[in-house]
C-alpha cells in the first residue's frame, strides 16, 4: 500500500517536528517537514498532502503570546488553502504550540492561557479519550494514552465547555491530574467535523514502549502509546 503523504508545518522555533516525523513514519506515512514560509510562497503545495501536523515548539519564540505569529502566517498567507484542506476531510493535528496556533487561527475553538501554576511544566500525564467525541484521531481508542506535557501556556479556556462536550468536540481529558488548570480537564479538542484535533500533550514522545518512565516496572505498554493517535490519523487519511 502506498504511503500517506503527510506534511509537518514548522515555523522558526518549531522544535518537535522531527519527533512527529518519527511517529508518522512508524505508522506508515511519508512525512515531510516544510517551513511555513516555504508554504506561503507556494500555497498549492499543501494540496499534495493528505495529512497535516502543526508541530510543537516555540514558533517565533512565543513573542506576543504562544502561537500568535505562526497563526498570523497561516491565516494571512495560507488561510484559503487550510480551509480547503479541512473541508476535504483531510486530518489535521496541532500539538502543543501547534494547538495554540490552531486556536489562534480559529481552526479550533477556545484559547490557551498561562498554566495556572504560572510556570512551564514537563511531566507525564494520562489522557482519557472521550467516548462521545467526533474526533477521527481518538476514534476507537478506549485505553488511556500516556505521554508527556512540556508547556507554559496550556491552560485550555472556553466559555462553554459543556456545549463543547455535547457537540462531541472534547476529544481528550486529563485523568486525575490536571497539570495546568484547563477548564473541565480538557486536554484536546476537535473542530465540529472531527478532522482537526488540537492537544497540549505530546503523543509523539510515546511511540515505543521504552519511552514510558516506568516501562521497567510494567508501566505503559502498547495499548497506551501516543502512537495510536497517529495510527488513527494516517488510517483516516488513507481511507479518504
Amino acid at each position: 500500500m502506498s504511503q500517506v503523504p503527510a506534511i509537518i508545518i514548522a515555523g522558526p522555533g518549531t522544535n518537535r517536528d522531527a519527533d512527529v516525523r518519527d511517529a508518522l513514519e512508524l505508522v506508515g506515512a511519508d512525512a515531510r517537514i516544510v517551513l511555513a514560509s516555504e508554504l506561503i510562497e507556494r500555497p498549492r503545495l499543501l494540496g499534495d498532502y493528505r495529512l497535516a501536523v502543526v508541530a510543537g515548539g516555540f514558533s517565533y519564540a512565543d513573542s506576543l503570546g504562544a502561537g500568535r505569529m505562526l497563526a498570523l502566517d497561516l491565516v494571512v498567507g495560507l488561510g484559503e488553502e487550510m480551509r480547503a484542506f479541512v473541508a476535504a476531510g483531510r486530518p489535521v493535528i496541532g500539538i502543543c504550540n501547534g494547538f495554540q496556533v490552531l486556536t489562534r487561527a480559529r481552526l479550533l475553538p477556545g484559547a490557551l492561557g498561562h498554566n495556572a501554576q504560572g510556570r512551564f511544566d514537563c511531566r507525564w500525564v494520562v489522557l482519557d479519550p472521550v467516548p462521545r467525541s467526533t474526533s477521527i484521531w481518538t476514534k476507537g481508542i478506549e485505553d488511556p494514552i500516556h505521554c508527556p506535557i512540556a508547556h507554559g501556556e496550556g491552560r485550555y479556556v472556553h466559555p462553554d465547555p459543556e456545549s463543547l462536550a455535547a457537540a462531541g468536540q472534547v476529544a481528550l481529558r486529563y485523568r486525575s491530574t490536571n497539570p495546568n488548570g484547563s477548564v473541565a480537564d480538557i486536554a484536546g479538542v476537535c473542530d465540529p467535523s472531527g478532522v482537526v484535533l488540537g492537544l497540549m500533550p505530546h503523543p509523539e514522545n510515546h511511540i515505543v514502549a521504552r519511552q514510558h518512565p516506568r516501562h521497567c516496572r510494567g508501566g505503559g505498554g502498547p495499548a497506551h502509546l501516543g502512537l495510536r493517535l497517529f495510527e488513527n490519523g494516517v488510517r483516516h487519511a488513507k481511507e479518504l
Binding site: R119, P148, A150, P213
Partner: peptide, 17 residues
C-alpha cells in the same frame, strides 16, 4: 519540571524516577 527533558524522545532514564 521546568526543563523539557522529554523532547527528541530519547530520554530513557529521567532525572526523576
Amino acid at each position: 519540571h521546568r526543563y523539557d527533558h522529554e523532547i527528541l524522545g530519547s530520554t530513557v532514564v529521567r532525572p526523576l524516577i
